[in-house]
Simulated assay, not measured.
Amino acid sequence: MMKLAAALLSACIAAPALADGLVVEDASGTAAPLATHTGTAPAAVHFWATWCGPCLTELPRLADLMADRPDLAAHIVIVSVDTRSIDSVRAFLADRLGLDLETLRVVEGTPGDTYGVRAYPATVFLAGDGTLAAKVEGSIDWSDPDRVADLAASLAD
């Protein structure tokens, strides 16, 4: 199991689930299991929605972290749970938040069924084999150096 500081784990650790329980689409509209995007190394998957106020506050800080730390960004996958099209979700990010973030969109399954997510934003931490190591429901302060250190430790191979 990945190491995560207690401060990062504001939510319970759930039973293992596999990243192939969700199908997501990318910017081109190609659908594939989430596991295709998380690979075989530890990953953080951040779930958000256009209608989620806390998500909209949190995403710019996550984008800043990813720009500042490409080593971590390579292991972070951002996934929208919206029902609107992927083009609409991407346009929302650009127009409303001024962000050029790569986001995927859930097209089959739910984060709730796969990972027990009950609220957004939510970040799930996956082991290299795709099983759930931990989850955080609610916002994370991605600008806090302690959270960044926790994230780096959780994404270490």
Rank of each mutant, 00 (worst) to 15 (best):
A19W: 10
T40M: 06
L93Y: 01
T30R: 12
V107C: 01
V24I: 12
L151V: 12
S88H: 00
S154C: 11
V107G: 06
G53S: 12
R147Q: 15
A31K: 08
D68G: 06
V79Q: 10
A153T: 09
A74W: 00
H46P: 10
Y120H: 06
M66A: 07
V89A: 01
W51M: 08
A19L: 09
L4Y: 02
F92R: 04
Y120R: 09
A43G: 15
V136Q: 11
L18D: 13
A27D: 12
V107P: 05
A153H: 00
L104A: 05
P70G: 06
G98H: 02
L93D: 03
W51I: 05
S139Y: 04
A156M: 06
A19E: 11
L56W: 02
L62A: 12
W51C: 09
T131P: 08
G21L: 09
D68H: 07
T123H: 03
G29Y: 01
S88L: 02
W48Q: 15
R96S: 13
C55Y: 03
W142C: 03
R69H: 05
D64T: 08
L22I: 14
A6T: 10
L4R: 11
L9P: 03
Y115M: 09
S139P: 04
L126T: 11
T114D: 06
I13C: 14
A94S: 05
D71H: 03
T38M: 15
T110Y: 01
A49M: 07
T114L: 11
A49L: 08
F47M: 10
R118G: 15
D64R: 12
D113V: 07
A41W: 02
A127V: 15
L97N: 03
H46M: 13
P121I: 07
P33Y: 11
L8M: 11
V107A: 00
T57V: 14
L8K: 05
D95E: 01
Y115H: 09
E108L: 08
L132M: 14
S85C: 02
F125D: 07
L65Y: 06
L155P: 05
E108A: 11
S80Y: 00
A156C: 09
G39Y: 01
V107H: 00
G21E: 13
S85H: 00
G29A: 06
L9T: 09
S85E: 01
A32P: 02
